[in-house]
Design a protein around this nucleic acid. Sequence first.
DNA 1: GTATGCATGTAATTTGTTACATGATTGC
DNA 2: GCAATCATGTAACAAATTACATGCATAC
Lengths: 191, 191
Amino acid sequence: MKLNATAKVLLGFIAARPRSGYEIKQLVDLSTRFFWAASYGRIYPELKRLEREGLIEGSDASRSGRNRTVYELTTKGREAAVEWISSPPEIYEMRDEGLLKLFFAETLDPARLPEIAREHGARSAAIAAQLSSLKESVAASKDEAPEYTDDAGSDATLDFGIAINEFVADWFERKALDLADTTAPPTKEKA
Amino acid sequence: MKLNATAKVLLGFIAARPRSGYEIKQLVDLSTRFFWAASYGRIYPELKRLEREGLIEGSDASRSGRNRTVYELTTKGREAAVEWISSPPEIYEMRDEGLLKLFFAETLDPARLPEIAREHGARSAAIAAQLSSLKESVAASKDEAPEYTDDAGSDATLDFGIAINEFVADWFERKALDLADTTAPPTKEKA
DNA sequence: GTATGCATGTAATTTGTTACATGATTGC
DNA sequence: GCAATCATGTAACAAATTACATGCATAC
């Protein structure tokens, strides 16, 4: 059973409890988004497809006149999900425009190298701060809203997100100073 | 001038000196690939498109009967490249299946949590090692082949790649031990 | 009564990989 | 003579975002 990127996150979230497409999108946006995004444009068609394949089953869960369909895993779907999680991870991709700019800065605009490094660090610092406040709000809402990410794995990924972004922020702050020294000493000429 | 992902890396590499599509693909694969990949299927059509747009200009550079076209930046192309590098970076995406598995492991297969964390760390350790050996070979070939990545920016991105992967490896090794403790203590019952 | 949020969906476009095809040259 | 590498390209497919459309409910 080959699962595409969207299918993986759908099955993962549905495994915990029946959920609607809309709900999954909210969950993704406040949790996995940093390492596994998903858009409505793929979520809804993929839910239909997974239902056709017999991995999930939808049922009407309208609330006060508002249409709503929640899906749950079928036996086949749970098997597919468990099989997926025990198989070796394959996808690891990133696209980081800040790094690319740093990479080409020497050729295109050497004077701005330290600045680019500093900006890159600042962006990571901002993400770390964002994740930290997310962590606080998740912890605060844990009692009322346990349906939101509440297990060891999601705690770990959030902690990891904070740790890595702090690391990156530090690294590039130091690099910026370093580059400022070697590329354009403030009071002396180039060595 | 809106540049797509492939255009950015093409202009960046061409800025340093005239290059062929084939050559750029080699360069990408041994440098930016870790944060900015590109495939032949996009490189060749995009080179044509950039030429039509007047950002680059191709010229015949066949070597001993083997057809070859190298491209260089036009004035317009250089302006676009410099403008790009001084604009704030936008794209920052990642897709990490290991993190996603960790995220859902509690729901789908809690016993394997520590193992998943350990595997994730091991993968980063492997990448760090790979990048370290790449760094050595780049350093070793610097004299004969200066056309390969030889500036402060590319050194920085390579160093960064090594540092971050080592950090991730450490973090997940520690996390794996931590999870092994809290989820399945070897000789005691759950606390 | 109006803006926001809940809820579902589709169309258009872009992007990207993979696999294949072609053919020459160089090193063994 | 054969494999590897240089070199360019295209077709088929998969994936993803963005923008749009619809409509009801709730809070102000």
